[in-house]
Structure formats: C-alpha cells, structure tokens
C-alpha cells in the first residue's frame, strides 16, 4: 500500500465558513438514528392526538369550534417532547460521547459550531412541525370530520395557531439545544427540558408566574381566540400569545449565550 497517494477531492478554496459548518452539522444530525426517530415521533404523536381530539364530541360548532388549525396544532404540548429530546441531544451529545473533540479540532471557532448547531436544530424542528401539521391535517380531512372542519388559513386565529405553534416548537428545540450545550449531560438536559416544557400543566391558574416561563408559549399561542380573550380578561397576565413566544425566544437566547460562554471558556 502506498501510504501517501495524491489527494483528490480537496476544495479549490480552502477555509471554514458558516455554510460549510452548517452542511456538516445538518448531515451529522440527520445521520443519527435519534434525529430521524425524533422527527417521526413528533409527527406520529401529533397525528394520534389530532385523531383522538377529532373523536371528541366537543369539536364542532357547539364546542371547541371547527378550526382545523386548532385540531392539528392544539396538541403540540405532547408533540414537543421528542423535539425537546432531540434538542438536548444535539446540544449535549457531542460532549457526552467525546466527539466534540473531533468537531472542535476541525472547527476551532467554537461560536461557529454553536451557530451551525442552532440553525440545524431550528431547521429540523421546523421540518418536524410542518410535517406534523400536514400529516395530521391530511388524516383529518379525509376522515369523517373532514367536511365540517374550517380550513381557511386567512383568519388571524389560524395563522397564530399554525405559524405561532411552529415557531414555538422551533424555539423550544433551540432552548433545549442551549440547555444541552450548557449542561453537557444529555439526561439532565432532557429532564430539565421536560420539566420546563410541561411546567404549564402544573401552573394552571398561576398565569402571573407562568407567563414568564418558557413553557407558557406553546399553550398560549395555540389557544382558540375565546380562551385567549378569557385569559386576558382575568387581568393576571401582561404578555399575550405572541408576547409569550417572545418570552420563550428570550429564554432560548439566554441559554445559547450561556452555552456559548461556557464553550468559549472551558476545555473539551
């Protein structure tokens, strides 16, 4: 064997930049089983919950209304769980397996790696959210309830529920990534994210506190107008549905900044 043969396939322009690191992280992420499972589980959980909800007699003009958006996105609270696991693994996995040493010796500008991972997690969560909505909607529309569901996407409520819900899922995955990269322990990060993600259930009736936590956005932004108005009329909250998405975004940014500071300062 010749040890050194003329190398082929080296780039014409040498260098490391965001585009290349992003392609690397995207490929690395989708190359893992856990990522494919997380996306599949998000879609499956959401479709199952939507199907269950459609069997509820309260769907329809007499109950929750016939908004398709609400039926397909109203259960993101459960569909978020695989994405929280995915985000936490994305942030912490390379540290727990030791592969961070490979990654960071190829890309010593650590901020670039964190940015590429963030964009990858956001993109993957967006793919999962859109797939979950489309698959759930398709299943419902061909089902017995289909003709009764209101599919118009031009009303403010549907846009808020669908776009706000998807953005919230993306931000939750990014928050999970930040928490994972900060803690560097996948299981601890997953536990923290489950607690944050589901905290809203434990804090029902305590909106004054809950509105400032990252778990508030998902329920708030995917609620029906009637519920949003009801909460607003109680006067205990100052952030509306979109405001709560902003609060979540601030938490995600904080987690990323802390993770970035740790990544910059500590050894790998």
């Amino acid at each position: 064997m010749t040890a050194v043969v003329a190398a082929t396939g080296l780039p014409s322009s040498a260098g490391v930049h965001l585009g290349r690191v992003l392609r690397s992280e995207w490929g690395k992420s989708w190359g893992l089983r856990s990522t494919r499972w997380a996306v599949a589980a998000t879609v499956a959980i959401n479709a199952s919950m939507a199907l269950l909800m459609s069997l509820d007699s309260l769907v329809g003009a007499e109950g929750y209304g016939n908004s398709l958006a609400y039926v397909v996105a109203g259960n993101f609270l459960f569909a978020q769980l695989p994405l929280l696991v995915y985000g936490a693994l994305m942030g912490a996995g390379e540290f727990s397996t030791g592969s961070a040493a490979s990654t960071l010796s190829a890309v010593p500008r650590r901020g670039l790696v964190l940015l590429a991972k963030t964009l990858t997690a956001a993109g993957t969560a967006a793919v999962a959210a859109i797939a979950a909505v489309v698959v759930s909607a398709a299943i419902l529309l061909v089902g017995p309830l289909g003709p009764d569901l209101h599919v118009a996407l031009d009303d403010g409520q549907s846009v808020r529920i669908l776009v706000g819900g998807a953005v919230t899922l993306v931000l939750l995955a990014v928050l999970a990534l930040g928490v994972g990269a900060l803690l560097r322990r996948p299981l601890v990060a997953i536990a923290v994210m489950f607690a944050l993600g589901m905290s809203e259930l434990a804090l029902i009736g305590a909106d004054a506190v809950a509105q400032w936590l990252p778990g508030h956005a998902l329920l708030a932004v995917t609620a029906l107008n009637e519920f949003v108005d009801l909460v607003a009329s109680m006067g205990t909250t100052v952030v509306g549905p979109w405001g709560s998405v902003g609060v979540l975004g601030a938490w995600a940014l904080l987690a990323l900044l802390l993770a970035g500071a740790r990544l910059r300062r500590s050894d790998v």
Binding site: P11, S24, G27, L32, S99, A100, S102
Partner: peptide
C-alpha cells in the same frame, strides 16, 4: 472522539464538509 451512533463514512463526511472536502 467519535460519536458511536455514526458510521465511519458519516464521521469522516461530517469532518470533510466543514472544509468543503469532497
């Protein structure tokens, strides 16, 4: 320093892509 869930090909591609190596 390799993720156990990745293939050798996947690991090397992950590194190669950061530099545009084919």
């Amino acid at each position: 320093s390799v993720h156990p869930g990745r293939t050798a090909y996947g690991h090397l591609m992950g590194l190669a892509r950061t530099h545009g190596i084919g």
